[in-house]
Design a protein around this nucleic acid. Structure first.
Length: 200
DNA sequence: TAGGTGATCTTG
DNA sequence: AAGATCACCTAT
């Protein structure tokens, strides 16, 4: 049943946009206290610290929250927004180059009953279609910030399928209007025609 | 379409 | 120390 884990080198490439696209079709797995859940990634967004006003590490800003951005690719970055929702990202690029990919939506694969119970909701199309819904269904919280996604036995990524370029739809990112001209960057990606997307 | 929620960051 | 902001979700 288990497929090969994605190695850290995958995330250490210098082009965060390419990593965001290539994460589509990969599987994320969490396994907390014997509760295993997994899902196929259907929607991502890229954030880049050097040039992107939407990124928490814009202009390499160092704060307590952004510390993990300055490690090499392959760590999780989890934070809370709006007092309620956790956002799950994967740090990319080499050490000192603060980029990340936000996981926005996924298609349920394993442990569906567990995800339904965490979400208090049964409709599969609403289980993981949005970044806050995704973390809730997968059981991810701020305590999972800074995890090594290759070494961890609680949160990791697996190979699954490759999405061809002509099945990837590109758009601007959601909820970052404050980023001025960078709000126009076409850095959101999703699988064309998937039923598991946060917005049409 | 509006309101809830609290960590995080900035200003004074 | 206080106030503003925020990579969202749910329900009307």
């Amino acid at each position: 049943m288990r497929r090969p884990k994605i190695k850290s080198e995958f995330y250490r490439r210098t082009n965060v946009v390419a990593v965001a696209r290539d994460l589509l079709g990969k599987v994320i797995v969490t396994n907390f206290n014997g509760q295993l859940t997994s899902a196929i990634i259907t929607e991502t967004e890229a954030y880049s610290g050097h040039l992107d006003k939407a990124c928490h590490a814009y202009l390499s800003r160092h704060t307590e929250r952004t510390r993990i951005f300055f490690e090499e690719g392959g760590y999780s970055y989890v934070y809370m927004v709006y007092g309620i929702h956790f956002m799950f990202n994967i740090i990319t690029n080499t050490k000192g180059n603060p980029d990340a990919v936000l996981i926005r939506s996924a298609e349920p694969l394993e442990g569906i009953d567990i995800m339904q119970s965490r979400r208090k909701l049964t409709n599969l199309r609403h289980l993981l279609t949005g970044p806050g819904k995704f973390t809730q269904a997968m059981g991810l919280t701020k305590m999972h910030n800074g995890m090594d996604l290759y070494e961890s036995d609680e949160v990791w990524m697996e190979e699954y399928k490759t999405i061809p370029d002509d099945e990837i739809f590109t758009s601007t990112r959601i909820g970052i209007d404050y980023a001025e001209e960078d709000a126009l960057l076409p850095w959101r990606f999703y699988i064309t025609g998937s039923d598991y997307i946060s917005k049409r």
